[in-house]
Amino acid sequence: MTEPAAPDDENSRAAGGFWYWYARGLREVFSLPALMLMTAFVGFAGFAREAGLPAGQVVLMTLMIWALPAKFILAAAIQSGASLVAAFIAVTLSSARLMPMVVSIVPEMRTKDTRTWVLVLLSHFVAITAWVIAMDRFREVPREWRTTFFAGLGCTLTLGNSILVGVVYGLAPNLPAELLGALFFLTPIYFLCSLWGSAREPSGQLAMVFGLLLGPVFYLLVPGVSLLVTGTVAGVAAYGAGRFARWWANRT
């Protein structure tokens, strides 16, 4: 890759080539959000093990899905004996949030020379944590090196956590029960906080509250399809309430 002269980009520097910016992305793996994510992956490894999934498939899930909520939903669906169609729909619905994240990050790292297939490959690494780190750090990265920076960040986070998941899966029976219990608890709390922070509008936060309250109810009423039913009922209700609130505010 040659470095094009980019007079429209003041941050553009001659210093730092491909590996420099790749390493800058890689270094973000040692940031606090990334460490929080790793502890959540420790919890996932234990959860998937208890759901009865073999080690290789848990690592495969980490590599191929990457987004943590989708993996928890798939593992929970498998554990509850859900059909392929039900599992597919549940994971698809939970992952819809990825699209707006990709839509918003693509213009930030694209130059007019960036190939679409590069963006498609890089989009696989988009999940809450990688997205938050990238959107935060992109200001310090010259535009033509942002795809490189994100590749370093995404590849390292995904591969690192896949290895972590495999190792923890093997260690899980030897860990003290109290420690495992605390780690399993870390994941829902981590999601609870980051989900609230990622909500863009009041209806998103309302959907979270409705989902938290209705989830256990539907878990008891309609086991097997409880996630789908909760998502639809609570989501539509929250959207309706959000629309009503907007209508009420704009009434006069």
Binding site: L195, L212, L228, T232
Partner: peptide, 12 residues
Amino acid sequence: RAIATALVAAVI
């Protein structure tokens, strides 16, 4: 987004 958020909340 509302449906997706509620779904993750149900998992939590």
